[in-house]
């Protein structure tokens, strides 16, 4: 079903326009997670769906992701590592000295830059979920292609 040439040129071009928009929407959902419905999990899954749309429509991205799968694995590992670093920083810097203590100022309720490290944590969780979902999909597609050959 997924050939290296992909689908027809109409589907390819339309998906090239739509997929970055979906990706941008995922980042928006992640960053504004402390003000509106959404958050890191929803944003990460939406970003992964942009990748999956590109993979299914265009064959060239799949070839690139096959050879450079370590990028996805690296971003996943780095994001969970930075989440751990955030926790330890809360232990060191916060006044209450607890794991995941909020060491940044809480700010005014309802503004974009508020809530201490909550937007940063949302972005990190979004990257982690996006990398995981894309990696699972790429692994399944690669296995299916090698089996059918």
């Amino acid at each position: 079903m997924i050939s290296p040439h992909g689908m027809t040129i109409i589907v390819k071009k339309i998906c090239q326009f739509i997929a970055p928009t979906i990706f941008l929407f995922g980042i928006y959902i992640s960053v504004y997670g402390h003000l509106s419905p959404g958050g890191g999990f929803a944003g990460g899954v939406i970003m992964a769906s942009a990748f999956i749309l590109q993979i299914l429509s265009d064959g060239s991205l799949l070839e690139k992701l096959k050879s450079e799968r370590w990028r996805l694995e690296l971003s996943e590992s780095l994001s969970i590592f930075s989440f751990l670093i955030l926790a330890v920083l809360g232990l060191l810097l916060a006044g209450t000295a607890v794991f995941f203590g909020n060491f940044l100022p809480p700010g005014k309720l309802g503004q974009l830059i508020s809530g201490g490290f909550i937007p940063i944590g949302n972005l990190i969780i979004g990257i982690e979920v996006c990398a995981s979902m894309t990696l699972i999909f790429v692994a399944l597609i690669i296995f299916k292609d090698e089996e059918s050959e």
Binding site: G39, F41, V45, V129, S132, M133, I136, A139, L140, F143, K144, E147
Partner: peptide
Amino acid sequence: VLTAIVIGLATKALLLSVAIRLYK
């Protein structure tokens, strides 16, 4: 439940990969 939904997808993918291994 928000965390449980995302974990559910990952475990479902794990089960599906076991299933297609057995199918092969």
